[in-house]
Design a protein around this nucleic acid. Structure first.
Lengths: 210, 210
DNA sequence: GTCTATACACCGATAGAC
DNA sequence: GTCTATCGGTGTATAGAC
């Protein structure tokens, strides 16, 4: 019933090192390669130390994942504070730096209950933050405001940026330039440059109310 | 050098059963759970039979993956033959049925060289098929034809549908309705209903050349 | 074509020494 | 706080019996 094993404190430096090691192994070799032995070795320790700080490997994995979601959330909130939040979302999501890691956790979530529920909860949290943080209507456009809400566009942008990031990480780049052109074309009109003179770009295409 | 082990024929029924079993295990437990023991057990056989038909586990995995990419390609070509290909793409990619499996292979591709190069090759093949199969310009719209090419739109649609499918598979649904509305709003204008009277939808928003 | 038997590496986890 | 020692279970792969 009660855990009899001796356990280390929550705030130990080694605990943090082990979580760092989890991310490193996940990035390099994937979740299948994750083991107490590999994680500890990367931290320069014997593998039994893992069970001094975490009761199971799943516990360590979940702790590392929670730390990561907190960081991603912070990144989102930064984008929300930008002067052009939609542009910021596009830039942030398109970044392939963490794409491989995200993919790994997404795949893992399909088979690990703890990671799954954490992922669902996190996904819903992101959406709440976006809904609250984005303005309700876009000022710079005359598009149907019921369809093209800032929230909806942010979600669409995150989808496209996410896939493009995944593919970049893998080494696939075909069609990315084309998708980027569409997104930028739309972003330019939905969220025009703020301070400077708003160039009407006369001669090129724009959205118009019919 | 030469493989000395005795090996079964390429066209054996058991070989196919083993590939089916690979997909089943991947779907249910993920690539980390994939092992000769589990795969064979699912096919109702002892695990050593795997090494009679495949020289390594990686070989079996690659064979199963290749079979799958062929099937997906066929699905794409079906969409290309539809009367409204972009609508067909959206419907096909949004389907969460195989999303978990796709995710698994994508994550795997990041750490398994054979699966990675096969994935890259397949990705490029899809793009060629799309480029060749889609018309060069959309007839039913007056949007900038250099930006909104059928190919670019098909890629964007695949991105959004893909992520939505992944999230559906996981159990995340927030924001999907909103993204769907945007996509459908655009699809309706980019690829109007063909045979029937083309409703101009007077009073609602449309794209216009500025 | 499928099985038993066997080899050896690595896995998570525990107990207890230092 | 980190180590050594040890456990049973599972992993890939091979050789050879039936």
């Amino acid at each position: 019933m009660v855990k009899k094993r001796r356990m280390g404190p929550e705030n130990a430096a080694t605990r943090v090192m082990l979580m760092d090691a989890v991310e490193a192994v996940m990035r390099e070799d994937g979740y299948a390669a994750l083991s107490a032995r590999k994680v500890a070795a990367r931290a320069g320790l014997k593998y039994q130390i893992v069970f001094y700080y975490f009761s199971t490997m799943d516990d360590l994995l979940l702790a590392a994942y929670r730390r990561r979601t907190e960081r991603v959330l912070e990144k989102i909130q930064q984008a929300l504070r930008a002067e052009r939040p939609l542009h910021a979302f596009w830039k942030a999501w398109r970044d392939p730096a963490d794409a491989a890691l995200s993919m790994e956790y997404m795949a893992l979530a399909n088979h690990n209950e703890a990671i799954r529920s954490e992922t669902i909860e996190f996904g819903e949290r992101i959406r709440r933050v976006k809904l609250r943080g984005l303005s309700q209507q876009l000022p710079g456009t005359d598009l149907d405001p019921d369809v093209f809400t800032p929230f909806a566009i942010a979600m669409a942008i995150a989808s496209m940026g996410g896939i493009l990031g995944f593919e970049d990480a893998l080494g696939i780049s075909g069609g990315h330039r084309e998708v980027e052109r569409i997104v930028k074309w739309c972003l330019k009109r939905l969220e025009p440059e703020p301070a400077a003179t708003i160039r009407t770009d006369s001669g090129s295409e724009r959205f118009r109310t019919g």
